[in-house]
């Protein structure tokens, strides 16, 4: 790993939402081939961090640095971040009425490849990936996320991720609202995408997704900070004991200092 450069890293990131600081100095390095997971209770700042890194206008990064593939992320607009290789699978993907999944997907892929790039392979790729994710092919002509169930939305997020082949994928609560079959399909999709050259960061409240996708590192986020890091065993401990002990540890540490 020593001779490798991180595919994605951020240092001392602070995020504000409507004037309130919700992320208070977090750092991480993701090397190619790594899977990281950020776990934490609701409201700990996990989603704010991923939205801010993607460039959401409501989540303002007030301090820190971030690099995708060595390039300065914070100088880029959201579309540039995407084209530089960052992807965020949203917790609540929005509906875009009137825009079909196929047209949207084609436009997005074209934006990544360049406007004069050949797209003749699009249809085949698209249909094959839909099939692999058990998405009915009628979804190609449905309007993006319009009237989709929670599970359908998540599958379509994964579909987008696989089609765009980002260098770094952030997955925000991708497991929420999924039944066990859908969870397996989505996890298979993530595993199919993941390889030695890209990185994955799973943001999740529960451990169950981690039964299907093995993380190399697990971090715990609490009150806007990463308070604990470890291997997969940390996720199991959280599953078993909940988040209370983390809170106690944090409070004790605060008293000691």
């Amino acid at each position: 790993m020593d001779n490798k450069k991180p595919v994605f890293e951020f240092k001392d990131i602070h995020v504000e939402v409507e004037g309130k600081e919700v992320v208070r100095g977090v750092s991480m390095k993701v090397y190619p081939g790594d899977v990281h997971a950020i776990m934490g209770p609701n409201g700990s700042g996990k989603s704010s961090l991923s939205n801010a890194l993607m460039g959401h206008p409501l989540y303002k990064i007030t301090k820190g640095e971030a690099y995708i593939d060595g390039k300065n992320l914070l100088e880029m607009s959201a579309d540039e971040r995407s084209r530089a290789g960052l992807f965020l699978a949203f917790q609540y993907p929005l509906a875009i009425p009137g825009v079909t999944v196929a047209n949207f997907m084609r436009a997005a892929l074209q934006a990544h490849r360049g406007k004069d790039a050949d797209m003749s392979d699009f249809r085949k790729l698209f249909l094959a990936e839909m099939k692999a994710l058990s998405i009915d092919k009628t979804f190609a002509t449905r309007y993006l996320n319009d009237g989709f169930s929670g599970g359908e939305k998540k599958r379509v997020e994964i579909l987008q991720m696989i089609m765009l082949q980002p260098k770094m994928a952030l997955l925000d609560e991708t497991d929420s609202g999924l039944d066990i079959d859908a969870l397996k399909t989505v996890a298979e999709g993530i595993n199919r995408y993941h390889n030695d050259e890209n990185g994955v960061l799973l943001v999740t409240h529960y451990q169950r997704l981690l039964n299907y996708i093995k993380p190399d590192y697990v971090h715990v986020m609490f009150k806007g900070q990463l308070v604990k890091s470890g291997g997969p065993e940390l996720a199991l401990k959280l599953e078993e004991k909940g988040y209370d002990w983390i809170e106690q540890e944090v409070n004790q540490a605060a008293e000691v200092s």
């Binding site: 579309d79 084209r83 047209n103």
Partner: peptide, 19 residues
């Protein structure tokens, strides 16, 4: 949402209007 998939803001707006 659309720009996070790589579309420029102009293209994203056009897609929303066409939709």
């Amino acid at each position: 949402y659309l720009t996070s998939r790589g579309l420029t803001e102009d293209d994203a707006r056009l897609l929303i209007v066409n939709g």
